[in-house]
Design a protein around this nucleic acid. Structure first.
Lengths: 319, 319
DNA sequence: TTGTAAGCGTTATCAA
DNA sequence: TTGATAACGCTTACAA
């Protein structure tokens, strides 16, 4: 494989000039630029990324921390990130943590040891304090609303999302509204829970412990919820699902328990995944794909930034 | 950050000796090994991977070609690959092709340009001839049965799988058996189709075009199949699903069309994904996780190898 | 506007 | 069994 010296020789210039052309530096005569480009083409020259990285002291690698990959939510997110990464010549290193703190620490340590240049944390278990301690070792970007952190983040206002969905149901006459949630300790879950509490208070509705379904993540969890629901004396008339997956599970299980959707039970999903379109689920659309891009771009930026991504309620047939 | 010189100085040896220790080379006195290890610890030294890569002329990157990420089948596979990769200090570069040939070519070109050391092709559209042409540029490993290729591969014998499942149904009295399939032109699909044809011939059963459901991939495709089924005069009594996802879709849709599983319709899934366990789907277990590991290991091996992975039919409640 | 040369942190050759 | 030293291919002072 040709190297920068070969190109220089071929073009009749020095390696410095070639390097300048390669990096779009100013102060190179037009003709020389052309000569260089010419001989790059001719020799089939390709920059040796390892040499560049060694010289520049960076890896061109960005770590991505997420709990699982086998859920469309994270799959879409990683899709967005990895697309953006390839545009900017970054490579992705996946850290699948399963929400294990020591797995998350490992990613952080990799940053410290300069094995990766930056880190995107899509979802975490570990405390923000610990994460912040690694800030000095490289850029850390979060996918959550970290109002009180000095790290960059992109976020969806889950409080407002939830409130919007709750009001939508209220306006359609629902007074017994429940919701599903995955983890109790996640940042997003916390926001959703607060919204729910506030909503009940504002509307003067009664809090009912039974209307909150925990550990909902996959489609089969939605089916389980419907099973539980079918055994309840007082049922909610509407449910906010954790995600479209969970909503889909509720819908697919509904005939089994003879629960008509939306007549007996209205459902609102989250994310607007393909399955929501396929099954006509009313949902709150979260542009995971663009969020992935934003996260990666924040990773490359010098400055700390906080970006809110807006969402919209998509009306379909489950309310 | 400490470098190899610092370590050498601290241990009172030359950099060569440190490098020998680092790489487990022979001919280093015990005491020196200890001294070196000592000062590595003391200085918090970490090998600069870029320098190593530059010197050795490799990237430590392995490309993974797959069409989508948002399907448990590929998610599990990539999980296995990425786990094995991190054990061996490899990083993964994802190529999501959507079965677009030029996307697949791009991955191949990256191999040629030494941007990655090797390539795992989990599923492809592009012809094997073209893939083989890139063999000289790095190791290429396939997840398919490439009997007539000189490339390494790990495979599941889909012919036998399918035959086994078909016979299982036959033994339970089924004579009207259909199946679902995703792409028509995939290697795996071809094997399944052949098995089906052979099975019919052996058992003297009639081929019925209507019993083959194409384009089945996601859960919602399974639901579509059941919808189609409900409109048929002569229905199959049993169906092989493309995957557990599709099987799950058929099951969830079954109450809607008043089709009892397994009494009106027996179903066998593939993969043994979590959803198959959750929904008690009889399925053919494919150890995607271990397959991922195998693929990565083949990537690192000097020799060309062909590994068959065995599968087993897991009896549950849908037959 | 251009070129020389030092240096990034390793590994590997060769000599001792 | 050990150590000097020359690469690997690039970027970037610094000098011209």
């Amino acid at each position: 494989m040709a190297n920068i010296h070969d190109v220089a020789r071929l073009a009749g210039v020095s390696v410095t000039t070639v390097s300048r052309v390669l990096n779009n530096h100013p102060y190179v005569k037009r003709e020389k630029v052309e000569a260089v480009n010419q001989s790059i083409k001719q020799s089939g020259y390709i920059r040796n990324i390892n040499a560049v990285n060694l010289k520049k002291g960076k890896t061109n690698l960005v770590g991505v921390v997420l709990p699982f990959l086998d859920h469309p939510y994270f799959a879409q997110l990683i899709q967005g990130i990895s697309l953006a990464a390839s545009v900017h010549h970054y490579k992705i290193v996946l850290y699948q943590t399963g929400y294990l703190e020591d797995q998350e620490m490992e990613a952080l340590e990799m940053l410290k040891l300069k094995q990766i240049d930056s880190l995107i944390i899509c979802s975490r278990k570990i405390s923000l304090d610990i994460v912040e301690r690694y800030r000095e070792y490289g850029k850390i970007v979060l996918f959550e609303n970290g109002t009180d952190t000095s790290l960059s983040y992109t976020f969806v206002d889950h409080y407002t999302c939830f409130m919007k969905a709750l009001n939508y149901l209220y306006d359609r006459g629902h007074r017994e509204i429940g919701f599903c949630i995955n983890r109790l300790d996640g940042t997003n879950s916390g926001q959703r829970e607060r919204a729910y509490q506030d909503f009940l208070e504002i509307k003067g509705l009664r809090y009912n412990e039974e209307y909150i379904f925990k550990g909902c993540h996959y489609l089969e969890d939605g089916e389980r919820v419907l099973h539980e629901l079918s055994g309840m004396k007082h049922r909610p008339t509407a449910l906010l699902a954790t995600s479209d997956q969970v909503a889909a599970g509720m819908i697919t299980a509904s005939p089994t328990y003879n629960i008509a959707i939306p007549d007996d039970l209205a459902i609102i999903g989250f994310d607007d995944q393909p399955i929501a379109r396929a099954m006509n689920i009313t949902t709150v659309g979260i542009p995971l794909h663009s969020i992935g891009e934003l996260l990666l771009e924040q990773t490359m930026s010098e400055t700390v930034s906080h970006k809110e991504v807006s969402v919209e309620l998509i009306e379909r047939l489950t309310v």
